[in-house]
Design a protein around this nucleic acid. Structure first.
Length: 106
DNA sequence: TGGGTGACTAAGT
DNA sequence: CACTTAGCCACCC
């Protein structure tokens, strides 16, 4: 009990994402885990509908790829924030999770 | 109440 | 690492 007013799944997801510092990233699974759930997909759903008010680019997939169909937009933020990046031969960019992964509990 | 959807993840190839 | 298949969870109609 003791859930704060309006503290439903959506509000908590947005709160966690907003807590990610610049230059760092979290995976969808990590955000879900921070909420005590495994609903990585549900996190993505929330981002797609409510992510416009939070740094959604700081949430990436387990492989370090940014949100599907938003890679180009995310790249601009990554470069501006100095997020550690790695590149594939085709010019496909991806976050270096080894360096940039952020754990709110640590 | 039940079924479909998706800005996902893990495991196998 | 890339692609494919199956499993998951919360949301919406």
């Amino acid at each position: 009990m003791s859930q704060q007013p309006g503290a439903d799944f959506i509000s908590r997801v947005l709160d966690v994402v907003a807590s990610i510092p610049p230059g760092r990233v979290m995976t969808y699974g990590d955000v879900a885990a921070a909420l005590g759930s495994r609903a990585a997909r549900a996190v993505g759903q929330v981002m797609s509908h409510y992510g416009s008010d939070v740094p959604w680019w700081r949430v990436v997939r387990s492989s370090g790829h940014p949100a599907i169909d938003h890679e180009a937009r995310a790249l601009e933020y990554f470069r501006a924030e100095g997020t550690p990046l790695k590149w594939s031969r085709d010019g496909v960019h991806r976050v270096d999770l080894v360096v940039a992964r952020y754990d709110p509990a640590r």
